[in-house]
């Protein structure tokens, strides 16, 4: 099929960017969205132009490296789908597709469609862990039974891939879904309770300092999240945060 692409091109962090139009032919419906961009880049290189820079790695929807705001939505129109798992059968011959980088001041553009998401790492460094050193002498893994429901909920929260779609899609560029996923994972496990109060306060403080907006519960993050991280996690974060004030 033939497509019209409108892609954000920006040479560097401080350069001025703009949308550039490309026409691409020979796109097959079995291709993934990123393979379509590979094809475009191949053609650009052959013409001596600079290829479009975009982040990607595992191409199976789990590493969280790929991003892209496609036709006004994070990771494109499909639900529970990362850009790398979005396939071209979703589009029709002659479609126009706009492709933009994640937009948030906390995610400055590095080049073209690549943004710097290291702020998410810094939030995790503030408390996204249980303080346990490596030791061959921790207690046996089955010492503390954990109700299946708690373990399952913790798992669901822990499946966040840190792609930043929640921030990209939120009208406030808030990272609450991302932060809450980690807070909620540990809050629901006995091992994580010990540091629960400190964790939530530290992570929220860094989240604010990194320049993310605040949550207004629009719920867009949950809808656009490729892993279906639930808004419940934000409620859990809020509860943990309020409880932490009483400690």
């Amino acid at each position: 099929m033939k497509l019209n692409l409108k892609i954000w091109r920006q040479a560097g962090p401080n350069a001025k960017g703009r949308m550039v139009d490309y026409q691409i032919d020979g796109v097959e419906s079995d291709m993934s969205f990123l393979e379509m961009l590979d094809l475009l880049n191949e053609k650009l290189i052959a013409k001596g132009e600079e290829p479009v820079a975009f982040d990607h790695d595992c191409r199976e929807g789990i590493c969280g490296m790929c991003s892209l705001y496609i036709n006004g939505e994070a990771h494109g129109p499909d639900r529970l789908t990362t850009t790398c798992q979005l396939h071209m059968r979703r589009f029709k011959d002659g479609d126009t597709i706009t492709i933009e980088p994640w937009r948030a001041n906390a995610f400055p553009v590095i080049k073209d469609l690549i943004v710097d998401r290291s702020a998410l790492d810094r939030i995790q460094q503030a408390g996204g862990y249980i303080s346990v050193n490596t030791s061959g002498r921790t207690v046996d893994a089955n010492t503390i039974p954990i109700p299946k429901k708690d373990a399952d909920n913790a798992f669901d929260a822990a499946t966040c891939i840190g792609c930043g779609a929640c921030v990209a899609t939120c009208k406030n560029a808030s990272a609450m879904l991302f932060v809450s996923a980690k807070v909620a994972q540990f809050a629901q496990l006995p091992q994580g309770r010990v540091e629960a109060a400190k964790r939530v306060q530290d992570m929220v403080a860094v989240m604010d300092a990194e320049g993310f907006g605040s949550c207004t519960n629009t719920g867009a993050c949950e809808v656009e999240c490729p892993k279906g991280i639930s808004l419940s996690n934000i409620a859990i974060l809020n509860k943990e945060f309020i409880l932490a004030q009483t400690k």
Binding site: V132, D140, A141, P145, A151, Q185
Partner: peptide, 17 residues
């Protein structure tokens, strides 16, 4: 043992193990 202490949410059965 280490992973469970770190909060890795392994699958559990209904007895919590």
């Amino acid at each position: 043992d280490q992973a469970v202490m770190q909060g890795v949410p392994f699958a559990r059965d209904y007895g919590g193990l």
